[in-house]
């Protein structure tokens, strides 16, 4: 139950808005972070907390692409397929990921580790091709880099190849 576990956080969120309903997206984000997807139980609970009807919650969940109604893999691999990334090879990247993971977009590996998706522009167009895995961005991808990222994730659950604070072009260091 969200309310038991995150009572203070939830109250704090609600207090930011003059209208309770505004806390809907923040609470749905919280629910998804907790369970990896937005379950029916969570939607009903959020409806109760915000004094909405369950359909009012459901219709919002179905509108936003980041909210998922189904459980997905531990690592959600999302490849940008919009034009600017496509110009610099996102198709090849997607093909490589499909071979490596053995699944197509929309599918999850049998061990429930990876779900592959294609998404629209993630504001990394100057550093494509790129993908987002859970919260992290991975940019300027090559086949070799993808392999290292997948191996890191399997082994450590995280990869040092993820992007830090964004800056492109990078600063040239004073002397090489």
């Amino acid at each position: 139950m969200l309310l038991e576990k995150y009572k203070d956080e939830i109250e704090q969120i609600i207090s930011r808005y003059p209208v309770r309903r505004s806390a809907l997206l923040p609470l749905l984000n919280l629910a998804q972070r907790e369970e990896g997807y937005v379950s029916e139980t969570a939607m009903k609970e959020i409806a109760r907390i915000l004094r909405l009807t369950p359909p009012q919650v459901y219709e919002v969940v179905t509108f936003y692409t980041l909210l998922s109604l189904k459980p997905i893999g531990k690592f959600h691999v999302q490849v940008c397929r919009s034009l600017m990334c496509a110009l610099v090879g996102s198709d090849t990247l997607l093909g490589w990921l499909q071979t490596r993971l053995g699944i197509r977009p929309g599918e999850t590996t049998p061990d429930c580790l990876f779900t592959l998706s294609t998404v629209e522009c993630l504001a990394s167009c100057g550093t494509g091709p790129m993908m987002q895995i859970n919260d992290d961005y991975y940019e300027r991808l090559t086949e070799d880099k993808v392999d290292r990222i997948l191996a890191d994730l399997k082994r450590d659950g995280t990869s040092p190849l993820k992007s830090g604070p964004f800056m492109v072009p990078e600063l040239k260091r004073a002397h090489g």
């Binding site: 919009s82 034009l83 600017m84 629209e120 522009c121 504001a123 990394s124 167009c125 100057g126 550093t127 604070p165 964004f166 800056m167 492109v168």
Partner: peptide
């Protein structure tokens, strides 16, 4: 979210 745009991300980060 406009494809081709990535300045606000840099300004914020």
């Amino acid at each position: 979210s406009e494809p081709g745009t990535f300045k606000d991300r840099q300004l914020m980060e």
